[in-house]
Amino acid sequence: MQIDFGARELTIKLVYYGPALSGKTTNLQALHRAADPSAAGRLMTLETRDDRTLFFDLLPLTFRDKMGLSVRLKVFTVPGQVIHASTRRLVVQGADGVAFIADSQVAETQGNADSFMDLKENLKASGMQLSRMPLVIQFNKRDLPSVRSDDEIATLAAQGREPVYLAVATQGEGVVETFIGLLHLTWSGLDAEHDLTRKFGFDARVFIEEVASKLGSQRSLPELLGTCVGGALDVLKPEAVR
């Protein structure tokens, strides 16, 4: 995060992590499509000819609250291919929150786990700890036939501590929910660490609701946050974040 008290400006870095082809870029595209033009900049994709992300995608979002505070969100994706390990390490540096995009297909289970281990190692290599990183997990591609069942995911999610979202990114389903969950968790963490609410006289709830509405969602914040599966909801309460 970067704080510029003079300009009353805050820059937050969010990273979409996950195995190759799990739908990270598609998530950003859906966010970009959903976002009000006043909030979203151009979606930048650094990709190769075969559509695979070469370095990263970057979606800049900017929100201004009534008090004149401006919050700049930089949403990155990482390239999933094994060979881009060094790029993933670079992109993840300085991340304030991570959304892990998993591929729901049964056959991808191991790939998801490997990529998660990779995330953990890359964070460690950058001096960050996974256990202290605001993290949400999305199971994408729910529309495909051979996916892990809702029940299985819900049961497992209930035993873990991260909020888990189900999504069909190609149809924009679950995309905003995942993003808002991540933003909420990230904000709670940053607020606890830097006392932002007090320093900026800032109402996080109003702000996040504003973001949600700029992303085309009419639902209330509790409703949006409530869409995650499993018993991980309590981590979303600010007081549960260290």
Binding site: F100, F116, L130, S131, I137, I153, L156, A157, Q159, G160
Partner: peptide, 9 residues
């Protein structure tokens, strides 16, 4: 470690 339980389970 219990991080990412749903992924690592």
């Amino acid at each position: 470690d219990d991080a990412g339980f749903v992924l690592m389970a």
